[in-house]
Design a protein around this nucleic acid. Sequence first.
DNA 1: CAAGATTTCTGACTAAAGTCAGATATATGC
DNA 2: GCATATATCTGACTTTAGTCAGAAATCTTG
Lengths: 290, 290
Amino acid sequence: MLDPVSRVRRFNRAVTSAVGALDTSFLGRGRPLGAARVLNAIGHGRTDVGEIRDYLGLDSGLMSRLLRSLEDEELIETTAHENDARRRIARLTAAGKREFNAYEAISNRQAKDFLSHHTQREALLAAMDLIASALGRDGTALDEMDPRSDEARYCLGEYYAELARRFKQGFDVKLSRDPDAKDMVRPRGSFIVAMSDGLPLGCVGLKGASGEFAEIKRLWVAPSARGLGLGRRLMDAAERAARELGIEVLRLDTNSALAEAGQLYRRSGWTEIPRFNDDPYPDLFFEKRL
Amino acid sequence: MLDPVSRVRRFNRAVTSAVGALDTSFLGRGRPLGAARVLNAIGHGRTDVGEIRDYLGLDSGLMSRLLRSLEDEELIETTAHENDARRRIARLTAAGKREFNAYEAISNRQAKDFLSHHTQREALLAAMDLIASALGRDGTALDEMDPRSDEARYCLGEYYAELARRFKQGFDVKLSRDPDAKDMVRPRGSFIVAMSDGLPLGCVGLKGASGEFAEIKRLWVAPSARGLGLGRRLMDAAERAARELGIEVLRLDTNSALAEAGQLYRRSGWTEIPRFNDDPYPDLFFEKRL
DNA sequence: CAAGATTTCTGACTAAAGTCAGATATATGC
DNA sequence: GCATATATCTGACTTTAGTCAGAAATCTTG
């Protein structure tokens, strides 16, 4: 009754039948599922035919025919790739955009209906985030971004909110040494965001150009993505960026209230050093030589 | 980025591709999905051909052919139903049992692998329970059971644990008026368990034979199934059972720390009355005339 | 027991998905 | 420039799923 394996399998069954219902709803617009999937992939910005084929796992012959059928419906147009005429680029026509929007509307309404039937909205959404992250962890990509981008600012906002929750004395960015965005952009530094299917799941900043060492700042992983090794991946990526920038010494500060972070640093080759700044929040200081 | 609808859709995408992988794994044994599904349904104890057809949503012609193909492989045998020779009963042969076990082993290993890749095990399982309950709520059946059955005892254990967590002074069954199991079995009373795909999600007891009124006891809903109206359904079922048993007055006691329960009673026609017993735990008392 | 209903089976189809061996056009490396 | 690799397309298949009409056997009800 409490066996974890049966619980996972119960989840699988529940989800399989729900997904079955989801699939048939796509047939509501008089188009076979294959063609609908290709149309959606194009609508979501995948234009390269080969990329769509890989993404959907289709045979090239089948893919070709699906493209032809969408062309016959005048929903898409294909052109040759500008640098490589072997490759084809597919784009939605005006009618194709309308059709794509209709599919989007169906999906959005379904999602809304699902949510509206439940009073446990937040718990349900948190559970969905957790599972989507767990299932999609191989699909989590680390992208270098500007720390002023929407994605980065979302991560930083969540990071500050979490510090405020976890520090006894609260947290106010203005009182801490908030790094200048330019110090976390090449060529001085870097800012990396972990993105999973459009949702930011974590970040880390590399703040350079402050003399003999650079600093790791703002390491954060979304609660729904913890335990998947994402913190480690972000730190590795930041170190890689540091090496590319010719940085030899890295430092960071943290607080002993953030136990997981401290563990991560110790386990990945950082050594504790004495306080090297006067920021009021940290009480633990680390260094790593690359 | 935080839009609930996008979060639901991200979950759908993650799960659809995971389920896709799950489906193809069934093909790993060289049998089309349809036949594999029928074999599994029979293995899980569904023997009546018509029942399987309804469960899997298959056309009778298709079903018939799938049965033939499984028979050709000598994985199943069919016989006529003993009371109705039109109906057919399907059973696994020894080879069929081996094959079914192989499918079970694949599913179990997949579930185990999934869990072993994550350190957030308990959080993940809780999230899966929540979502499975939310998706499968139409499939939650209320079954009358003996309060000494495994399912009932699991529910009661969870119920006591929750009271212990939520009451400031803790909770010890021995100090409360624990009803005799016989008073919650027909013809005196009843005990109802909400089952969803093998997992007990809630319970309620109807304790009769104590004079001029019967009592509702042990109303519990699993955390993962709250907000789905299950408490209401359980109460309705208990009242229905009470009417069948000719009971005219129902009473119950509860504690103001269980706010949701109090709300439910008030909203479904119960009226508060003065204390009618000397149990140390409750501080709220209700009555309903049927 | 006759008429009608129910359950399963069979035959004759269609649609969709998927496979595979070339053909064609283009790019790349020596 | 030529051999080789790559990307897409076409034709000729097969498999799987699903539909539908009607046959055959059996049950139910008046």
